[in-house]
């Protein structure tokens, strides 16, 4: 049994109105425990709608979502319990900070779960550690933090609920390159240490290629591909027809292969490419 499975999942905005719009169209997929899944697709392809259905913020127009084999909408009154199990970090989550101190803001989720004071404190401490927020920052007002710190504080607010599945919608948007790398590696370490399932929605093919095991490709409300990162990014032409591209390093290596160099296909990271190329050069006796 899969951790999360969707069958015929559909969402239609303002149904019956002239502005009716199908955002998600009959999706079927399974996500296993401990996977790191990436979702890519151009703007308006339905990614954000999809993730909001996964944690029960939006109720599907049709179709079902099962968490551990149980339909999440079987008891609509207990949908809050689903939201604690499937944590969703929205785009630009720093705009949701509201408490007097960072610590209190991170504690908002655990408090809503009804945990006791000691547990809440532990959760806040652990979550802050995962995103590398210094102790002294926790007592500051969230509005005095820098942009990157605010972002990390907001993510910690969701991690503190210790969800089985952590969904992040464009967590790196608007951060500088160093900030992106740091945040991404923090998310990756969280995934490795806790062994939790993580779903990452991103516009950056590089990010998705580096950290994700499997990649979902959304196009015009439909799920076009759901395969290992390597397989997905080896279908360059199909992706570009959808307005997506492969990671830069993949396309460089692909060009080298086309030019006659015997490198292996589906290289996703710079490190891997360096390895391939040095190996080739050694074989040729040029290194």
């Amino acid at each position: 049994m899969s951790l999360l499975s969707a069958r015929g999942l559909t969402y239609i905005y303002s149904q019956g109105m002239p502005t009716q719009h199908v955002a998600v169209d009959h999706l079927d997929f399974d996500i296993e425990q401990g996977e790191f899944v990436g979702i890519i697709g151009h703007t308006g392809s339905g990614k954000s709608t999809l993730v909001q259905m996964l944690n029960g913020l939006l109720k599907p127009t049709a179709g079902t979502i099962e968490l551990d084999g149980v339909n999440i909408w079987s008891k609509p009154k207990e949908i809050r319990a689903i939201r604690f199990r499937v944590g969703l970090v929205f785009q630009y989550p720093e705009y949701q900070l509201f408490e007097e101190t960072v610590a209190k803001d991170i504690a908002f989720g655990p408090t809503n779960m009804g945990l006791d004071a000691q547990q809440i404190e532990n959760r806040v401490y652990d979550a802050a550690k995962f995103v590398d927020l210094k102790q002294e920052l926790l007592e500051k007002s969230p509005f005095d933090l820098s942009g990157g710190e605010k972002r990390r504080a907001a993510i910690a607010g969701v991690i503190a609920m210790d969800p089985d599945i952590l969904i992040l919608d464009e967590p790196c948007a608007g951060l500088d390159p160093v900030g992106r790398d740091i945040l991404l590696s923090q998310i990756y370490n969280y995934h490795k240490e806790r062994g939790n399932t993580v779903i990452l929605v991103s516009h950056s093919m590089e990010d998705v290629a580096t950290v994700c095991d499997r990649v979902m490709v959304m196009n015009h409300a439909k799920l076009e591909m759901f395969d290992s990162a390597q397989n997905v990014f080896s279908r360059r032409d199909e992706l570009s027809a959808m307005g997506l591209r492969v990671p830069q390093i993949t396309s460089i290596v692909d060009s080298l292969i086309e030019a006659g160099f015997p490198l292996s296909k589906g290289v996703l990271t710079v490190d891997r490419a360096v390895m391939e190329i040095t190996e080739f050069l050694k074989k040729e006796g040029r290194l």
Binding site: Q52, N55, L57, R80, R83, F84, G87, L88, V89, F90, P93, Y95, Q96, F108, G109, N112, M113, G157, V158, M161
Partner: peptide
């Protein structure tokens, strides 16, 4: 809508 959704995602009732 967005902020409400974000706070609901953190269990706001």
């Amino acid at each position: 809508d967005k902020i409400m959704a974000a706070q609901k995602a953190r269990g706001a009732d």
